[in-house]
């Protein structure tokens, strides 16, 4: 049984409204922290040489939030129990430049902040039940390939 996230130092959410950089910064700020790191995922206007007009994100929110919490607990175990961690992922349609994910890390020192931030985004992309459908300027759209959650697929 995995450990439940401590909501005083971990915040995770799948949101269908605008993701706030200000709220992310405020959550990870603390007097004992000398570092705050913000990773912002945005919709870009191209992928694999195709011009993109926007992206629709689908998510199974209950499990997505559970897995994001597990990843945060793992990051605290690996990089420091004093880390403050924040992950929000968007669900719905975003135009170019829209914010799809925010990962914020607060830490007494910079090295664990960089390590934890990288760990959170890489694990999120492999494990969290979220899907991306790209819309192209041509009018076509397609669900992107991803990482299977089946063991030994």
């Amino acid at each position: 049984m995995s450990q439940s996230p401590d909501t005083r130092s971990i915040h995770v959410c799948v949101r269908e409204t605008h993701l706030s950089l200000e709220k992310a910064s405020a959550f990870v700020d603390a007097g004992e922290n000398g570092a705050a790191l913000l990773f912002v995922g945005r919709v870009r206007n191209h992928n694999l040489n195709k011009p993109v007009s926007g992206v629709s994100y689908d998510a199974f929110a209950p499990l997505a939030e559970t897995v994001m919490g597990e990843i945060c607990v793992e990051a605290q175990a690996q990089f420091g129990p004093d880390l403050r961690l924040y992950i929000e992922h968007f669900k719905g349609y975003l135009p170019i430049g829209g914010i799809s994910v925010i990962i914020a890390v607060g830490s007494p020192h910079r090295a664990p902040a960089y390590e934890a931030s990288r760990y959170l985004i890489e694990e999120l992309k492999k494990r969290v039940p979220v899907w991306k459908k790209e819309h192209y300027l041509s009018g076509d759209s397609e669900w992107l390939d991803g990482t299977s959650l089946v063991e030994n697929p």
Binding site: G41, Y57, A59, F60, L63, A64, H89, S100, V101, I121, L124, K125, K126, R127, V128, P129, V130, W131, K132, W143, L144, D145, G146, T147, S148, L149
Partner: peptide, 10 residues
């Protein structure tokens, strides 16, 4: 239950 295709968030 839910049927989950390969994930591609971020």
């Amino acid at each position: 239950l839910v049927l989950l295709p390969p994930v591609s968030g971020g």
